[in-house]
């Protein structure tokens, strides 16, 4: 393993990278099949965000709308927040899926095979990313029914969706590590809930952070959730994009730089 390896050739690094990608694609495909074979789970993971859209826009719309800048409808303000909120809540599903695989012995078989050490993890987070895309598309459709509109053009709208997906992808690597460490679907889910709930509410998901007490506003202002929401919101409705986007990309890079290697390391050392 430690000998220097050629870049090209049958056993070269390029060929190895190709095999690694293929392994990741195979595991991703397998996980996507799981989603399709369990339509009830897919249904529940889409009902919840749709419910949030409807509840928040109709229940809180009147009260919160008053605190918004003039001309901004609460449903327009809310939707990018709900995209991020539902991504955050869904991220713990990564840990659940991984923990279930660990318990069932499928991962044991894969670890005894000469395949990429990263494929089980990348396949899981990538499949969850594809599922997120599906859920976000559905939420946009529901949003359009209750009056939400992207105002900044197709490219900016696509950018907003990419921010939402990347946010979920970054979080799902935290939950990859959680799933590997806890080894139990239930524990992973409750751990996720405890960590995610306060983060989501102490952010600009549902309300402008200027309405919070100053100590909380300080926290919410640097939170990755706020950075992601403000980026997605600016790309959806207009406004200052670069500051929140830079903060968000910084958070994302940091999360991935820490949790991808930690997860792979943990996976290799698992017993």
């Amino acid at each position: 393993m430690n000998a220097p390896r050629a870049l090209v050739g049958e056993d070269g690094l390029l060929a190895e990278a190709g095999w690694t990608l293929r392994d990741c694609a195979l595991v991703t495909g397998r996980n996507l099949r799981h989603f399709v074979r369990q339509p009830q789970l897919l249904l529940f993971s889409t009902i919840q965000p749709v419910m949030f859209i409807l509840l928040f826009s109709f229940v809180f719309g009147g009260a919160i709308g008053a605190t918004l800048p003039p001309g901004v409808d609460y449903v327009d303000f809310l939707l990018p927040g709900i995209f991020i909120q539902s991504s955050a809540f869904r991220a713990s599903q990564t840990a659940v899926g991984l923990a279930e695989d660990l318990q069932r012995g499928v991962v044991d078989r894969m670890r005894s095979m000469p395949m990429s050490r990263a494929a089980v993890l990348v396949g899981r987070t990538t499949a969850d990313l594809v599922r997120s895309l599906f859920v976000v598309a559905l939420m946009i459709a529901v949003g359009y029914l209750v009056g939400f509109r992207f105002t900044e053009g197709v490219l900016a709208a696509a950018g907003a969706v990419v921010v939402v997906l990347l946010f979920g992808f970054g979080l799902s690597w935290i939950f990859t590590l959680v799933g590997l460490v806890t080894d139990s679907a239930e524990a992973a889910q409750s751990a996720g809930f405890v960590a995610i709930f306060p983060l989501v509410f102490a952010s600009s998901v549902f309300v402008p952070i200027e309405t919070m007490p100053s100590w909380l506003e300080g926290f919410a202002g640097v939170s990755p959730v706020t950075a992601a929401v403000d980026s997605a919101r600016a790309l959806s409705l207009g406004g200052e994009v670069s500051d929140p986007l830079l903060l968000f990309l910084g958070w994302l890079a940091g999360l991935l730089a820490v949790f991808v290697p930690l997860s792979v390391w943990r996976y290799r050392r698992m017993s």
């Binding site: 293929r22 099949r33 000469p114």
Partner: peptide, 30 residues
């Protein structure tokens, strides 16, 4: 590359068909 492992905790993917299970692992065996 030289070993096969089978055991009491049958490591089959329950949501995939038998054929899909074997195809998946065949692919991962490259």
């Amino acid at each position: 590359r030289e070993i096969g492992l089978a055991g009491q905790f049958a490591a089959v993917d329950e949501l995939l068909t038998g054929r899909e299970n074997l195809r998946l692992f065949a692919g991962l065996f490259r």
